[in-house]
Amino acid sequence: MAKRILNQLLFSNKIKFPITTRRFSHNTNQVQTKEIQIPVQWGHIAAKLWGNENERPILALHGWQDNAGTWDPLAPLISKHRSILAIDFPGHGCSSWVPPGIHYYAWDLPRIILYLKEYFKWEKISLLCHSMGAIAALRFSCLFPDDVDFFIAIDSLVADDYDLNIFIDKYPSVLRKINLQQTRLNEEPPSYTLEEIAKIWHLGTRKSVTMESAHILLKRGAKQSKKDPNKYYFSRDSRLKYTLFTPEKKIFVETLVKKLICPTLYIKAIDSPFSCDEFSVEMREIIAKNNEKYECHFVPGTHHVHLNTPELVFPLILNFLQKYNFHSI
């Protein structure tokens, strides 16, 4: 049903897509970058800044088990118009893991956004987000509507609607695996050659992340093995694999998204299986009905379209920033 609606939207607008080619280099040497660490009670949040450090940046948030490197191809393009600060969420990339005995909770991510806003003393916050980061940012934007000047989301807005029976059936196994991972926090995970680990990341995303893009993510997502210096292992917290994504009632999500009032750009990748269910489509329709500054665009590509083909999303983002005069602050 959702796929049929998506096709109707695409073909009714007679959209013609360009041939997908890389017209932009992933080389970020021409753009000033800076690595920073933001202190938190359990350690630090790592971040990468592109552009002018004297202006308020756009806060860029990555997806589940990815890292700030997901913005490496796109951030240099945007930072010529507005600086970008991309964080590694806790447990991801170069950020600290949560303490032993603690687990990751999806609703803690909006609190992280609030913490960053307060830490940097930003009057407003600007958001560029993908997947898990976009879901977290939507929740923040709805809870704190006066604190967000704009929100850009790529391929996700709300958590997909899944069969509750599947969730409940999997919970016992997930809880056991969570407890098991708590006992392995000091152990080095299995290691691989660079090509092997890139292929694992590529296939683990059902080829959503290309092999080239996997190598980009590995810059922050892998560490050299202490047992074999020719091999590498995934450096993210293994507890992330077993995060409990709790389904939410329709009336709750509907009430939430009605609070989204800031200018919002949603970019949907048409080859992605995410956010295509009827529930997600209906929530987007509610947003469009209640927010006159909401716009949606469809582009060819996988869930990681911004990472694999930044040239497809950059013009849309630039037009959006210029439309609302957010390209320089």
Rank of each mutant, 00 (worst) to 15 (best):
F252K: 15
V253M: 07
V253G: 00
V253L: 11
E254L: 10
E254G: 09
T255Y: 11
V257T: 06
K258H: 09
K258W: 02
K258A: 12
K258Y: 05
K258R: 14
L260Q: 05
L260F: 08
L260I: 13
L260Y: 03
I261A: 12
I261N: 13
C262D: 05
C262N: 03
P263S: 07
P263L: 04
T264I: 03
Y266H: 11
I267L: 10
I267F: 03
A269R: 02
A269V: 08
A269Y: 02
A269E: 04
I270T: 12
I270R: 06
I270K: 05
D271K: 09
D271H: 10
P273Y: 08
F274C: 07
F274T: 07
F274H: 09
F274R: 04
C276N: 13
C276R: 12
C276A: 12
C276G: 07
D277N: 08
D277H: 01
E278Y: 09
E278L: 10
F279L: 01
S280L: 02
M283C: 11
M283G: 01
M283V: 06
R284D: 10
E285T: 13
I286K: 01
I286H: 00
I286E: 00
I286V: 14
I286F: 00
I287C: 05
A288R: 05
A288D: 08
K289W: 08
K289T: 13
K289L: 11
N290Y: 12
N290H: 14
N291T: 12
E292Y: 11
E292P: 05
K293Q: 15
K293I: 11
K293L: 14
E295S: 15
C296E: 15
C296P: 01
C296Q: 14
C296M: 13
